[in-house]
Design a protein around this nucleic acid. Sequence first.
RNA 1: UGCCCGAUAGUGUAAUUGGCAACACGUCUGUCUCUGGAUCAGAAGAGUUUAGGUUCGACCCCUAAUCGGGCAACCA
Length: 567
Amino acid sequence: MSNNTEDVAGTEKRSLHFIESIIEEDIRNGKNDARVHTRFPPEPNGYLHIGHAKSICLNFGLAEKYNGKCNLRFDDTNPEKEETEYVDSIMEDVKWLGFQWDKEPYYASDYFDRLYDWAVKLIRDGKAYVDDQPQEVISQQRGTPTRPGIESPFRNRTAEENLDLFERMKAGEFENGSRVLRAKIGMTSPNMHMRDPVLYRILNAEHHRTGNKWKIYPMYDYAHGQSDYLEGITHSLCTLEFEVHRPLYDWCLDQLIETSYRPRQIEFARLNLSYTVMSKRKLLELVKGNYVNGWDDPRMPTIAGLRRRGYTAAAIRTFADRIGVAKRDNVIDVGLLEFTVREDLNKITPRVMAVIDPILMVITNYPENQTEEIELVNNPEDAESGTRMLLFSKELFIERDDFMIDPPKKYFRLGPGREVRLKGAYVVKCESYDQDADGNVTTIYCTYDAETKSGTGSNQAKVKGTLHWVEANSAIDAEVRLYDRLFVDEDPAGHADKDPIEFLNPDSLKVVTNCKVEPLLANTKSGDKFQFQRIGYFCVDNDSTFSMPVFNRIVSLKDNWAKEIQK
RNA sequence: UGCCCGAUAGUGUAAUUGGCAACACGUCUGUCUCUGGAUCAGAAGAGUUUAGGUUCGACCCCUAAUCGGGCAACCA
């Protein structure tokens, strides 16, 4: 390592984060034969969220960077919470993000036999014992962080007795929860996790892979390090809350292996995002309580939700890269995520005309029954994207927001007597308008100047605004789903006395059904993304049909006018 | 009252490992524009939680304090 910085994406310089520093030092020292082998170890008890994406990008990214490998391993040691549906969704999400795990996916449950044999070794070595006490008693005896615990009366059974009991636990002779296998470490450690921790518990539940074969299941602390070891993992990355578990991770390995190869646990700070919740438990609550429409609801911070919303995998990877990796607690502004998608979408999406809240515009001096074709650039950011033709006629739809009867001075759009350009077409001037009984504007009457057609080079006096529009007769109907942040509070889970549900944003979804979009949008498929000119980025939803296309708003365009009216 | 982590502009992350704090987002100006988008140019904004110490020199090392987070599931 000659320099502490490196090229990222060819241009940006980025310095090494602390995990990379550790890895590079390990490589220099030839530790574990200078291999880099990471793993992403989700428990299949829920869908992955953007926080997991950070971890995925970290683990797979490190493997890529150092020519190593990264495993996908399902940490399925608790059959009561785990399901195959989650396994499938997790694999799909990891692949979608653009990563490929080494070989086949691994499962902690594949190691149950090895883990069992190791447990037997611990018992033989006098380092584990079977405790017959109920959970509450064990819990009481553990003491408190400030007071040491006391030893279990079953702590000093003979190895033979322990072995016999443990085998019978495995055989299913005992009741659920009636006995556990505990490590024999001591009851006085200031670290609660080191006070004779439970290694195995009896669980009469059907496991999603091993079915009813097992009656006992290993605990995370016992299973994780050994699973890492069996897979040849070198750097086992996890979040900060596992810091206090590390001594136990190391203790187990110390007792069980004698090779020089050793996996090392390193902790980093999990991602927190403003205006959302980021725990599987809380997300599950949103799903089960029908506050959202499933795990892939576009408002969810799940990878499936973001995907359906229209976020690109590239944007999420860039985001993960931008937020960095460190050990201090952090809350990332959702604005950064939004910026990152806009940045990506700006480069890749075709621009189209779509009017979300249409109002009829009649061009009074445009010949009756005449139409013409207007050529429009598909994407000014992409020279390869070409152009397309769009119909223009006497009757158009424009956005209701783009007209005001009595506009303020800084309003660059249409009002009585004002002039604007219709994007790609002509400059029009508002001559009059109709209102209904309630005062709503129903039709806007304009005149156009035939000399001002776009691309003719006739440099007309500049107009302040340019509006998007669709031709009234050829436009097709569409449904648009306007998504906004799910919570109105910056940190919905940060109130000890209040449930995040209380901060749900009542306007997080607005369904608009009478939108008018250009005819091209009849032929789209789920997942297609567009920029609705002047409005935002949109993505074709799964619910879309030929007769009624449905678009999700991914994110709006940066809107300075909206900011202006805030003032 | 215990133990373990952490603390740098509004938010994140840096600082060539001790040489007078940088980048991104955000904010504000302005430019350009047939998207009030994008682009481009520029500005404001921290003197690194505090107090000591070591040193020619400290964001960086030491000590203490303060603040924040984590730890007492047969969850992961």
